[in-house]
Design a protein around this nucleic acid. Structure first.
Length: 275
DNA sequence: CTCGACTCCTGTTAGC
DNA sequence: TGCTAACAGGAGTCGA
């Protein structure tokens, strides 16, 4: 098979739970609101985070009624009528399956791993339906009463003032700050590359080197990009994504994209128009 | 406080 | 052809 075609196929599969994907999970999880938890299955103690155990999760959840599903950044929160909250994180390969239907059909790496063997956590409801977290690589996790305030403002509604505060006083690379969930919640590696490419800003610039107009513009691009990608199907629908590979080219400038490690993450950017 | 380096995990892929 | 090692990235921890 020609190399170009292989790249294209790989790009098609690239799909990681970032903000857009977790928003789909949230919408799917809304349908369990009003239901009573009749059974809790937490077979993997490693998957229970921040002091939670299969026993403590069962104690907190069994008999509780879910009252709603919220999202902050990449964290999905199920509210319970008891006032307690269940936090779900999906890592890189976590999927949410509600009543047997996957909230997203396909994620990177696990297209052929749609296997109940990777079920890390599930709730069964009084009506017989269920909510399952299926995570091949176990980088996600489940916790009780997550500290939502430890997360920065949600990227989907990021204001210029909020972004300015998130970037202030940082000499490290802009991209590193954007990936820091305590500063801005919801941006992952793909979405960060996408927004900086669209905004025409070099990801390696010091975070506090952006002028007020750049901050304002970037915040707008972040909001618009997320809004667009939530409508069009997820992070992998980004304009940059098909070119986000070795040898990929900038669709604006038709030059080869630069590939670097910034903030510890593989970064693709255009040396010509991202300044 | 900031921030880079390291670690977790496992399917895929590059390279010998 | 078959094996191995690097790679992918969200998030926590550690130490300078």
């Amino acid at each position: 098979m020609p190399q170009r075609q292989r790249w294209h196929r790989a790009a098609d599969r690239r799909f990681v739970p970032e903000l857009c994907e977790v928003e789909y999970y949230r919408r799917a999880a809304e349908s369990v609101a009003g239901r009573l938890v009749a059974h809790v299955d937490a077979p993997d103690p490693w998957y229970c985070k921040r002091g939670a155990t299969p026993e403590s999760l069962t104690a907190a959840l069994l008999g509780a009624t879910v009252t709603g599903a919220r999202r902050r950044g990449k964290l999905l929160v199920l509210d319970l009528h008891t006032g307690r909250r269940l936090g779900l994180r999906f890592g890189m390969t976590g999927r949410l399956i509600v009543d047997g239907v996957a909230a997203i059909a396909q994620l990177e790496y696990d297209s052929r791993c749609d296997d109940p063997a990777w079920d890390r956590f599930s709730l069964t409801f009084g009506d017989g339906g269920e909510l399952v977290v299926r995570d091949t690589r176990r980088l996600g996790g489940v916790e009780l009463d997550p500290d939502e305030d430890a997360l920065g403002p949600d990227a989907a509604t990021l204001g210029a003032g909020e972004l300015g505060a998130a970037l202030a006083g940082g000499t490290a690379a802009l991209k590193g700050r954007l990936l820091d969930q305590a500063r801005v919640a919801g941006l992952g590696n793909l979405l960060t590359d996408e927004t900086l490419w669209r905004a025409g800003i070099d990801p390696a610039r010091p975070a506090d080197s952006l002028g007020p107009d750049e901050v304002s513009h970037l915040a707008e691009v972040v909001r618009d990009t997320i809004a667009e990608l939530v409508v069009s199907g997820g992070s992998h629908r980004g304009t940059l994504q098909p070119e986000r590979r070795v040898g990929g080219r900038c669709l604006r400038c038709d030059v080869e994209l630069e590939r670097r490690a910034i903030g510890g993450r593989t970064t693709y950017s255009c040396a010509r128009h991202q300044r």
